[in-house]
Design a protein around this nucleic acid. Sequence first.
DNA 1: TGAACTAAGGTCAGTAATAGTCAAAGGAAG
DNA 2: CTTCCTTTGACTATTACTGACCTTAGTTCA
Lengths: 154, 154
Amino acid sequence: MSSLADHIEAYIKKMLRSSGTNSVELSRAQMADDFSCVPSQINYVLSTRFTLERGYIVESRRGGGGYIRIGRVQVEDDYAHAVRLLQSIGSELTEKQMDNILVHLKDHQIISPRELRLIRGIVQQEAGKIGQGRNLLRASLVRSLLFFIIESKS
Amino acid sequence: MSSLADHIEAYIKKMLRSSGTNSVELSRAQMADDFSCVPSQINYVLSTRFTLERGYIVESRRGGGGYIRIGRVQVEDDYAHAVRLLQSIGSELTEKQMDNILVHLKDHQIISPRELRLIRGIVQQEAGKIGQGRNLLRASLVRSLLFFIIESKS
DNA sequence: TGAACTAAGGTCAGTAATAGTCAAAGGAAG
DNA sequence: CTTCCTTTGACTATTACTGACCTTAGTTCA
């Protein structure tokens, strides 16, 4: 049931975890070949799953000896970083923005997968109860829940 | 007597029981096909029977390879009463009502004094940001934060 | 040295595959 | 008959995947 994009994402994350250097380099064509797909599929995965919002940096070079390098953003202090992320939440938050923040925090082990699911569930449930102002509610809810979690752990 | 929605509910619960993992994944279209109904009927069942208050988390994704995943979250007996209290929170909540609930939960050791202060602080902060609909926001915020706390402890 | 060739990677728009929303119609229990 | 729950379907939104075409960098050789 999980899509090809999911598999590619998982594979890259596994490479990242086992790299030790927080950064991996790969060949787009090679990758596409390994997964039997068109090369642009790799770009699709990168642009949907490895965004800056989610805490990843992607660099690349074309031409002979070209490459794609994927790194995780470096933070000195996870706690301070999380607080900054929280502060970056404005008064409105779309579902996609929320997801990016949650995945970012999960990938950096600031919240657990279970907490991520719970927050998503709670927000979905509450947002479903109102007609207007969902983005406003989402912002409040996510800010509060994350603040609570971070505060509880510190 | 027993409606189609009931059958679908029972079927999903049976899948959950026999899954071993406390979570099942299904395809909305497939499900609708199996029960010879329109796909949105599945949404109806999910939104009326598999709510957070009843102990379920529903996640889904659209698009190719899309899915609906239903997970179970279990609440211990100690907290069942608190959950019922949560359910009684309507769509609006005044500051006074909120305080009554928080104090009650603190007195019954469901939340700690620190958590009480934290919730009050968060709600005050968020409520201060908006002009209208404070009671609506308070209800969502308190319900969500308390649910999160209870869920995290059980 | 620079034109032509080779070897990467990037973009974008179109198609297909799912799921979600909402309001209206239907039906059963009081 | 009224009210509440169920069922339906038309319309919408999101996500995945593909292929044609574009850009950039290195290499070769007249």
